[in-house]
């Protein structure tokens, strides 16, 4: 593995991402929506004072849950399959670079482009919030952005895995979109229905929902901002009493698993495939 080669490939990937219309569109949407959201949350900033960040953050969490997985999944799903379809991947692999370097370079470049996107969204919204005294503590805001970034990495890994398993870019993007639907809507709705029909205990409900990285992100962000999970009702209170501050570690570990495992699986697939 050669770091300079990886860095060069990452720069190329970053450059491609900046030219990619999908990506620009998502970034613009994320920036625009977070801006609109912070602007709307300012209605109460004057009458409520410093206390207002909780709800702004809550709306931001809602927005992040919707947009970030969509962005990261489609960007990840495009990555390998698209280049393979165009034939550029075969050309790249014919160069004196190893598959590890190609994979790592791609991942790094996409991760950097996601960081730029998340940073722009949070940064611009943060300027508006700060100027109008709608923001809370700086640490909470940075924490929320950090967790958002981790979520985007997890979704990127899943997207890359889909990409490595697809032969065509169209199939990969379709798969990515389906996964987005599953993570954002179907999973939660299904679990709600299951909880009602099967009479799940709060512990079972908590752990089943934690299989979804979006829920992990959501709970971790709420824990950061509120210092408790009582917003989440009985299951949240159960989690606090059962695991207490260990929850932070649990959330971090789950998120790390969602980042690392799909990425490793994607690499294993990429390494074995003969048709690239």
């Amino acid at each position: 593995m050669n770091i300079t080669v990886i860095w060069t490939l990452a720069q190329k990937e970053l450059r491609d991402a900046l030219r990619n219309r999908w990506f620009l569109l998502y970034t613009a949407a994320f920036v625009g929506l977070s801006l609109a959201l912070s602007y709307m949350s300012l209605a109460g900033a004057g009458i409520a004072g410093f206390a207002g960040f909780g709800r702004t953050a809550a709306s931001l969490i809602n927005l992040v849950l919707l947009i970030i997985p969509l962005m990261a999944l489609t960007v990840g799903a495009q990555s390998l399959a698209h280049e393979q379809e165009q034939g550029t991947l075969a050309y790249l692999l014919a160069q004196p670079v190893t598959r590890v370097e190609v994979f790592a370079g791609k991942y790094l470049g996409l991760a950097m482009s996601l960081l730029a996107s998340v940073g722009l969204g949070f940064g611009i919204a943060g300027v508006v919030l700060a100027i109008s005294d709608g923001a809370g503590s700086p640490a909470a805001y940075v924490g929320l952005m950090g967790r958002t970034y981790l979520l985007s990495l997890a979704m990127l890994s899943v997207g890359v895995l889909v990409s490595a398993m697809s032969k065509r870019a169209g199939v990969a993007i379709g798969g990515g979109l389906f996964l987005w639907l599953a993570f954002v809507f179907l999973g939660d709705l299904g679990l709600m229905g299951t909880a009602l029909t099967m009479r799940l205990s709060v512990g079972q409900l908590l752990w089943l929902s934690l299989l979804n990285p979006l829920q992990v992100f959501k709970m971790a962000a709420i824990l950061d901002i509120n210092a408790t999970l009582d917003l989440l009702g009985p299951a949240g209170i159960y989690a606090m009493q059962e695991y207490g501050q260990r929850l932070r570690i649990i959330f971090l570990a789950l998120m790390a698993a969602w980042i690392v495992l799909p990425a490793l699986a994607a690499y294993a697939r990429f390494q074995r495939r003969g048709d690239f």
Binding site: M112, A116, A130, D133
Partner: peptide, 28 residues
Amino acid sequence: PAPTTANLLVALTMVAAALFIVWTGRRG
């Protein structure tokens, strides 16, 4: 009152970091 200056600095740093990454890509 909210810690306006600190929040503004944090937000601007985020924007700057994002722009730096974009610039890295452009330079590439």
